[in-house]
Design a protein around this nucleic acid. Sequence first.
DNA 1: GAGTGGATTTCGCAT
DNA 2: ATGCGAAGTCCACTC
Lengths: 258, 258
Amino acid sequence: MSNEKPIIILKTPTKEETLETVRSALSRRRIIIIAGNCWVDYQGRARSTLNPGERILIIKEDGSVLVHRPKGYEPVNWQPPGCIFHSDLREDIFLIKAVRRKPRETLQIFFDEIYFLAAMSLVDEGEFSLYASEEDMQEAIMIQPSLVEDGLHPITYEKKVEPGFIDVYGIDKNGRMVVIEIKRRTAGKEAVLQLSKYVDSLKNVVNREIRGILVAPKIAKGVQKLLLTLGLEFKRLDPKKCAEILKKRKARSLEDFY
Amino acid sequence: MSNEKPIIILKTPTKEETLETVRSALSRRRIIIIAGNCWVDYQGRARSTLNPGERILIIKEDGSVLVHRPKGYEPVNWQPPGCIFHSDLREDIFLIKAVRRKPRETLQIFFDEIYFLAAMSLVDEGEFSLYASEEDMQEAIMIQPSLVEDGLHPITYEKKVEPGFIDVYGIDKNGRMVVIEIKRRTAGKEAVLQLSKYVDSLKNVVNREIRGILVAPKIAKGVQKLLLTLGLEFKRLDPKKCAEILKKRKARSLEDFY
DNA sequence: GAGTGGATTTCGCAT
DNA sequence: ATGCGAAGTCCACTC
């Protein structure tokens, strides 16, 4: 028994070969990769046109589409998962049309030259883990509040208040209420104003002094001033340090378990 | 003379072939596409691991990297343009390491099976045009203010005030100051609060009545109430209509020119 | 189904 | 370089 992957690879196929192969691959929900000279029309939430040039087209098994230029991280045109496809041949132009409902959008790609075409099924059950997210920081502060300051007692996190959510809410060693806003990267004006809003809205409710602490790896340059003006505080905290703490804790709890 | 594109396509190449081809392609700044079984480590602004599975790797000529799973619009791992690459072979594992400075980040991809490899140079000078963006809306309002209301006279756009930038600023038919905040899609709480901030900060400066108008195709459900509470107004405007107006105007100015 | 906020956001523009 | 806001943002989660 052969374990060879069923992969179709065509180098400079004719338009007819392309059409046949693409249709077959679409019906079997295979991934399709095409490199060639193409132009693209998009119509939906906005509208765009892309003049002819050499690009890579990827159609995935879930109905997502990517058109990549030779440069840049982002696709120049795309569709999120869920598209329905039509492919056709018109006067030696190979065209693929991807249609999405909700919102109604149409992406049309026209090829006049095809350099190669690949179609295959890929299996990917591999777990993806991301560390040092904002959520990790919140969790780390909850289990080790001294990361922010000694004597801090977190009460709740994600507490709902009028303007939105407070990341962490607690009581400091002197019994004062503390509101903490967490950012996983350089905190800007936005974060400060958000924290300020939270503090103000809480003041309206409890009518007592409230400390607002912005926790982030860094604070943007001009923003420190705004922070002080609003009577808020800043505490530097590295997201990676938080990830480390969680990792260690996790390892320890496994030890305890066995 | 042959016009055949210099494309290298290898089906199930050996690791040695892969290494040689990838190194050559990297040095010639060619685009590389690999499909195979791989795992990925990322370390930089955050950190991530991706367990083995079948994916597509794309390396572009500008040093951007994309690792795509068989599903989803977004790459599972990536690097923006500007990476420096190292490739190597270790105990029958083919590895590619992409390093970026500023911020310092490392992306490592390990292949134990390679289904196919393609390397090519693509030329793409095609113009890309996007219509019905927020910028189009702003432009359309500047040249046809009646889109918002009759008698409106726009004075400036992108006016700097304390909290940020005002999209459009002008005077209405009764001589009152008008601040306009534009959104190209359903305006939410965020947009209303932003507009409110702008209006308030301008009031502090000029000490006279100021109208704040939110211009968007739609306003979110609960948000209308907030808008009214804050004494602001809403004007429905479709971004596509704005695009149409600009298009017509462009066509007319071309006519005038010839 | 709509609303809300985060993102390894990326990207572009202005300071 | 840094800051700032938009994006056809996408995506996950809540109501």
